[in-house]
């Protein structure tokens, strides 16, 4: 593991140095992201103008969920950006070279590109999170901090696992991977609101199959001391990191299974 991490950072350094020349475009992209964040929060505000509360959750509580999602998604995208190249590697057969090396192909591919401009989005997420906590009047002590951090960690793990599953589908067809990404980004939109407001079938998908809702909703219920209308077992609130890690383990298993189906290309 330590060796893998060291190789990851060595490769990351090598790749990132090659990318530095595109720096000016980062600035524009960050500006675009900032505007997008603002538009998103305005969107949430407009909803609350009309309804005052969503499923018993106030405006700032929803902004908190928005911040959580943005940060977790931002980190996951940053870590997983190398996975975006897998469809191309599979199509051209370049994936071959990652299979003839004595390290895991993931350690090799993950640092392949590091979308530094996504850092901008992360910062916006952090601002949304901090402001929402302040406006909601939460004074973060040890307990609150632990909940916030473990939720972020779990949500990030789940998103990363979703990206990994999506990339794995490309070993069969590119289309199936794109279809799956609908769940990833759909999940991102879902976790911006408390899952209790959705139809049961939709809610259950994002609670128990793709646990995006599970890891963001239950801990936040404790954080804001909300009434929990689903009457879920209380221990759900404490096992989110475990659920996230199990989901990641399943994704890794699927990835390994997918590699065995890799067909390469003719030469």
């Amino acid at each position: 593991m330590r060796e893998n991490i060291s190789i990851y950072f060595t490769l990351l350094k090598a790749y990132t140095l090659g990318q530095m020349s595109y720096r000016s475009s980062y600035l524009y992209e960050m500006l675009g992201m900032a505007i997008l964040t603002l538009v998103n929060i305005c969107g949430i505000y407009i909803i609350f103008e009309t309804f005052e509360s969503v499923g018993g959750w106030s405006f700032w509580e929803v902004v908190y969920l928005y911040g959580l999602t943005t940060i977790a998604m931002g980190i996951a995208q940053l870590l997983a950006s190398g996975l975006n190249h897998i469809p191309e590697f599979v199509r051209t057969g370049d994936f071959d070279r990652y299979l003839i090396r004595p390290i895991s192909p993931l350690v090799h591919i993950l640092p392949y590109s590091f979308a530094l401009h996504r850092v901008g989005r992360l910062i916006q997420g952090v601002i949304a999170l901090v402001v929402s906590l302040y406006m909601r009047g939460i004074d973060p002590g040890g307990f609150e901090l632990w909940i916030i951090c473990s939720t972020l960690f779990s949500l990030m793990i789940v998103y990363f696992a979703l990206f990994l599953i999506g990339a794995t589908f490309t070993f069969w067809t590119i289309q199936s991977a794109e279809l799956f990404n609908a769940f990833t980004y759909g999940g991102m939109e879902m976790s911006k609101y408390p899952v209790s407001i959705y139809q049961p079938w939709l809610r259950n998908i994002f609670l128990f199959i793709i646990p995006v809702g599970f890891v963001s909703y239950y801990p936040t219920v404790i954080l804001f001391n909300k009434h929990e209308p689903l009457n879920s077992p209380e221990f759900f609130q404490y096992i989110t990191p475990l659920v996230a890690l199990c989901f990641l383990a399943a994704a890794l298993k699927f990835w390994k299974f997918g590699i065995k189906h890799y067909q390469s290309t003719g030469s």
Partner: peptide
């Protein structure tokens, strides 16, 4: 795969390592 990779070298003429 990884054990095997340590003992082999591979050159693909049309694909760079």
């Amino acid at each position: 795969r990884k054990e095997n990779a340590k003992q082999i070298g591979v050159v693909f003429g049309q694909r760079t390592q």
